[in-house]
């Protein structure tokens, strides 16, 4: 990889020649657009990106980006991406996945990738439904949700992707609404700079099988009341009139109105995404109303791939043999005449 200045790339440079085939009106188009806009801003060469996916609607993503890519098998994107990255740590490796691909069939790979903290970015399109197999419940479907495999209402409690990420010793978790390309674009660029596994949940509306799942959270009319967008170092304030905020009461987060009951802005919690203790981050990812958006957790530590490379180099320096032949002929050998 040369140190030359990278040529200025644009949205168009990252488009592939393939026809995009998601359902009309799907949030996936918005995610793709946001990614194609974010990629040139990352300041890397086009040939150094690899998009890896599993199976599902989200997993068609690599075909639509003009970089290197692998459309893998169901659930295994995280493992395939791990191999791509460890073989060539210089690459920027992205896993494009869904709630079923990442947390049902691929749950094991998902949690272990996060545990290891390999410098790979995971974008999970969470639509709380199985789309490509046409409408079965997923590991994030809600209790009571009616699907083709839960016609009388789902009875399996859902995963919270943020909780699962942090529970797997995750160092980075962010959430973003699927109808906000601007926020997504910014987040993708920020995540790319993070040295470790970044887990990004996109609340993605499936227009066919679970339309309106996030309506109350993402509707332009109500979003400012039902979402809180947080940033490291800033007070956690929300509401149309910026008059609500989060405080800690006992061991729970509480929503308060600024100016009522003696509450002032000074009482509102400041978001610390860099705090290693996950207690408050867990409360934030679990909060139902408002739903927290943005970089909830971002702990910079040494990534697995950095340690891996260092270990390879340090062990190589200590090699007891100059070359293979020397090892073959070392130790207990004997001559037959």
């Amino acid at each position: 990889m040369s140190e030359q200045t990278n040529p200025v790339l644009t949205f168009k440079d990252f488009q592939s020649d393939q026809e995009v085939r998601w359902c009309p009106g799907c949030d996936d188009y918005i995610i793709l657009r946001a990614m194609l806009k974010a990629l040139p801003e990352m300041g890397r060469k086009k040939e150094d990106f690899v998009f890896v996916s599993g199976i599902g609607c989200s997993s068609r993503f690599p075909y639509y980006v003009g970089t290197y890519g692998i459309h893998g098998i169901h659930g295994r994107a995280a493992a395939i991406a791990t191999g791509v990255k460890l073989a060539n740590p210089e690459l920027s490796v992205w896993v494009m996945t869904g709630d079923g691909d990442a947390m049902a069939i691929g749950g094991n790979h998902f949690i272990h990738l996060i545990r290891r903290n390999i410098n790979i970015k995971i974008v999970m399109f969470n639509n709380e439904i199985y789309g490509l197999t046409k409408g079965q419940f997923s590991p994030t479907s809600l209790i009571g949700q009616k699907t083709y495999t839960s016609p009388y209402g789902n009875i399996q409690p859902p995963f919270n992707p943020g909780q699962l990420t942090i529970g797997s010793s995750g160092k980075y978790f962010a959430r973003v609404p699927g109808n906000d390309p601007k926020m997504m674009e910014e987040l993708f660029v920020k995540a790319e700079k993070f040295k470790g596994t970044a887990s990004i949940e996109v609340l993605q509306n499936c227009v066919i099988f679970n339309d309106g799942a996030f309506e109350e959270i993402t509707n332009k009319e109500t979003e400012s009341e039902n979402q809180i967008r947080i940033e490291h170092g800033k007070k956690m304030i929300f509401g149309k009139n910026k008059d609500k905020g989060l405080i800690l009461k006992g061991f729970k987060l509480e929503v308060v109105n600024i100016g009522e009951n003696g509450i002032t802005e000074d009482d509102i919690l400041v978001h610390d995404a860099h705090e290693a203790d996950p207690t408050l981050h867990l409360m934030l990812v679990r909060l139902q109303n408002p739903v927290v958006m943005g970089e909830i957790r971002r702990i910079e530590e040494t990534s697995y791939d950095e340690v891996y490379v260092e270990r390879m180099e340090s062990v190589a320096k200590k090699s007891p043999f100059k070359n293979l032949d020397e090892m073959f002929f070392s130790g207990d050998t004997y001559v037959v005449e």
Binding site: I70, G72, R76, A79, T82, G83, L86, N108, H112
Partner: peptide
């Protein structure tokens, strides 16, 4: 790379082959 399971073993190898 000691993977989390057999499937991850071969999947990481496929990724490395691509690289």
């Amino acid at each position: 790379f000691q993977a989390e399971d057999e499937i991850a073993g071969i999947s990481t190898a496929i990724g490395a082959s691509f690289s």
